[in-house]
Amino acid sequence: MVFLEFEKPLEKLYEQLEKIQQVAEEGDLDMSDSIKELENKIRATRKEIYSNLTGWERVQLSRHPERPYTLYYIREMSRKFVELHGDRNFKDDKAIVGGIANLDGQTVVIIGHQKGVNTKMRQYRNFGMANPEGYRKALRLMKLAERFNYPVVCLIDTPGAYPGIEAEERGQSEAIARNLIEMAQLKVPIVCAVIGEGASGGAIGIGLGDRVFMLENTWYSVISPESCSSILWRSWDYKEQAAEALKLTAEDMLSFGIIDDIIKEPTGGAHANPEEMSKILKRQLKKAIAELQEMDTEERIEARINKYANIGVYDVVTE
């Protein structure tokens, strides 16, 4: 098990539990009462820690190495899934995956950022940082969905679009911009969910939809707390303050009207019970898709555009 900094009290309890279990085993003693007591304590401590998370702690949770990623969710949610590769132009990006899946009888196109599960795979997936061909693959799949009238599901989990030389040469900004304008007019329902990190243009490049959800322990911001600290505080040391200042949690986003709902995570976070998390996510996606399918196409596109047109806070002065 991996414990985050703020989970230290839990780590100690687990260590105690392990010791007692060992003692019980070695001495062939009945220690079930103490074990039960400790287990209850663990449950209570976890609940307490998780009911009071700061912005920065949620950022850490969103990056938890055991957190489920897109392909895990797709396989859990869908009995049939065919992954589709390539942007039909340059190559196949590994940081954005996608394909055609079946959610309890409803065919959907699912697209999402993909991070690696170990060191080797993290590099293979470029840490979930897509190049332009990733965004173009995503758009190709959305157009496929449109052609066959399948709803689109986008799962967002990226520390940002990749800032590299080749990414610039191949038009990183054009690729993201193109997705935004095309997604605004896509004829089929689009449901998005932030399942981990929602950083900046890299996130919104597959994040414009009729419904946008965030899992409870995720974040969405114009910039990562680290980069924000480096630019505004001119030092990497203010990431906690930056995380608070950016108001990047799911609760913040819901209160701003930027997202439509928060998807609850099991206690201890999505990684504590990934199967349960997948069930909760699937339920919410299916519900949203069903609602959106009730709407007339033109009406749905208009509502989508109006939703974004209404996002913004400003004063109006009269002179």
Partner: peptide, 26 residues
């Protein structure tokens, strides 16, 4: 680029302006 002091609101202006431009294109 984006105005960091408006965080997600600033990010959403990318979606807002692009969505609006799609109506001009149409």
């Amino acid at each position: 680029g984006a105005r960091m002091m408006e965080s997600a609101f600033s990010l959403m202006q990318m979606a807002k302006t692009s969505a609006k431009l799609s109506t001009l294109a149409k």
